[in-house]
């Protein structure tokens, strides 16, 4: 019972924050909305029994990525947006396409997919760090190593790109 209520609350929060992200003028407001979305998503992960992922979500996204975003907004002193008429095609065709997109996906999810079950909190306890670690370091070892190299490259790239500013 309570997981249903929790789901509805978190879903509404996520959607509202998402709308806020799209509709706000100043980037910092959008950044804060994004943090709201991520937090509610973390709760949803917990409801789905994915403890490790929920924690990772909060630490990586909320703790690192969003802080980075806020830093950059502060650094660049990004102001409000100005109107522009260069991308008229996007302005005109965006909403209809998006509505169609959501419509199709909803139809597919409700109609075409085979009947899915329900989510009961606690019915699956296979999402612990131990379980994740076990699979991560055996079957998915190679992608794990590659991901590590990727992070290294990203660090190098970021350092190179942002370096000149220091001179």
């Amino acid at each position: 019972m309570i997981d249903t209520v929790l789901f509805i609350i978190c879903a509404i929060v996520a959607v509202v924050c998402g709308f806020n992200l799209v509709l706000q003028k100043h980037p910092i407001s959008s950044a804060l909305s994004l943090i709201g979305v991520m937090s509610s998503l973390a709760v949803l992960y917990l409801l789905l029994g994915a403890e490790f992922i929920a924690m990772t979500q909060m630490i990586v996204y909320g703790g690192a990525v969003m802080v980075l975003f806020v830093f950059v907004i502060m650094l660049l002193n990004a102001g409000s947006e100005k109107a522009s008429s260069k991308s008229w095609f996007a302005q005109i065709a965006g909403v209809p396409l998006l509505l169609a997109f959501v419509g199709i996906l909803a139809f597919l999810i409700r109609g075409v997919l085979p009947p899915l079950g329900t989510v009961a909190f606690g019915s699956w306890v296979g999402g612990t760090a131990e379980h994740v670690g076990q699979l991560l370091f055996t079957t998915y070892l190679l992608p794990f190593e590659i991901i590590s190299v990727l992070i290294l490259i990203a660090i190098l790239g970021a350092v190179v790109l942002a370096r000149k500013e220091i001179d």
């Binding site: 991308s87 996007a90 965006g94 396409l97 998006l98 169609a100 997109f101 199709i104 996906l105």
Partner: peptide, 18 residues
Amino acid sequence: SIRNYATWVLAGSLLVIF
């Protein structure tokens, strides 16, 4: 314009899904 490109991508992917 990147936004136009994105819209085209959206349209294309919609077509593929359809």
